[in-house]
Design a binder for these strands. Structure first.
Lengths: 201, 201
DNA sequence: GGCAGTCGATTGACTGGTCAGTCAAACGCC
DNA sequence: GGCGTTTGACTGACCAGTCAATCGACTGCC
């Protein structure tokens, strides 16, 4: 019978990796940095993970699956499309608010890294776009959004706008206080929907 | 009197570097790959450039300064803000159309690479945001754009939307034919301005 | 014309340092 | 004393950057 160890080393290493990746970047850091940050021996990282890459993959998948689930759940709700997009934007921004380091790592090292993890995780990333595209397409069918805009493009545009905001926080280009989060979220949804909604005049 | 050599080795190496960086990524490629692609000896790269990094910096600065000049020039024109943004979007999309490899490299390795070149070139990147923000701010003063939106955020959002499109082409998520370029450009400007323009109802 | 000398362009073998991943030994809980 | 956990020194591969040697275009001198 396997017993739970008093401390979850695996978790400890993953959490340390987030901090190290956020601080130095995946490629610039050494595995020994992660071990040091976690306060464990170098070799232990390889006891719990097959490779340095696998640590990153684990972090990404863990968080991204939450996003995918959230998009799916939001889509099922019986609310207007604007509120659906608002909920999705809110989820992503809250993810950043809750754990900026992890989101920074995911954005910088995966979703925006076309040459490394972005390539390997493309199917999962695309699944998020597709989920958003579905919300837009449904809104178009219902006559709520103008239907002369490709839902695929609209979804990338919507997600891209949010990611750009997070990047601006990551880069420190705009202040990252509570107020800023709320205003940014409102602005993205307001303007995106403003551009997408069918004019009623 | 210095004479121009029959072949511009420096240019030859830069052009080869673009192809190699686009194909393999900056970090994944070796300097010898660049030399091979250019058809010159390894050491010659170091005759013309101080380091591998400097090759990348050169490529970025060369192209980015054109963008900065274009934004400035567009801003001076006496045309409505929507057309200004349309011209900026057009310039960026045309840059991609004209030299997809170079734009891919710049986006993937610089503007979206928060941990490497993105950090070192942040001032230049920010200058582009500022230029766009100025267009938005002026439009707000003139009452053409709604003024409850922070121009800084709006500029990031606008640039981010375009970059997201380019990324989608880079990743092969959407077709990259002439028709697609035109529709995408129209959509970005249409929806962004749709969201930003003061409602007249 | 032929020859020696100069100097920047060009070559590619080599060096030094870095780091992911291995492994055999030590630990400590049962 | 057995077994999963933990340790950290070590290895092997990789690669940016160096450098001494070679090339070859051109000059000036006889």
């Amino acid at each position: 019978m396997a017993k739970a160890p008093p401390v979850d080393r695996r978790r400890q290493i993953l959490d340390a990796a987030v901090r190290v990746f956020a601080r130095q970047g995946f490629h610039a850091c050494r595995v020994s940095d992660i071990a040091d940050e976690a306060g464990v021996a170098y070799g232990l990282v390889y006891h719990y993970f097959k490779s340095k890459d696998q640590v990153m993959n684990e972090l990404f998948t863990e968080r991204w699956s939450l996003l995918l689930a959230a998009i799916e759940e939001v889509d099922k709700r019986d609310i207007p499309p604007r509120e659906k997009l608002d909920a999705v934007a809110g989820f992503i921004i809250d993810s950043y608010r809750h754990d900026p380091d992890l989101m920074k790592v995911i954005i910088v090292e995966v979703t925006r890294a076309a040459n490394s993890f972005g390539r390997t995780h493309m199917p999962e990333i695309k699944r998020a776009y597709d989920g958003i595209a579905k919300i837009v397409a449904d809104a178009q069918s219902a006559g709520e959004f103008r239907d002369d805009i490709d839902p695929e493009l609209a979804s990338m545009w919507f997600y891209g706008a949010i990611e750009q905001l997070l990047s601006a926080w990551v880069f420190g280009l705009i202040p990252a206080d509570e107020d800023s989060f709320e205003r940014a979220r409102a602005m993205v949804v307001e303007t995106v929907c403003g551009g997408l909604e069918a004019r009623r005049d």
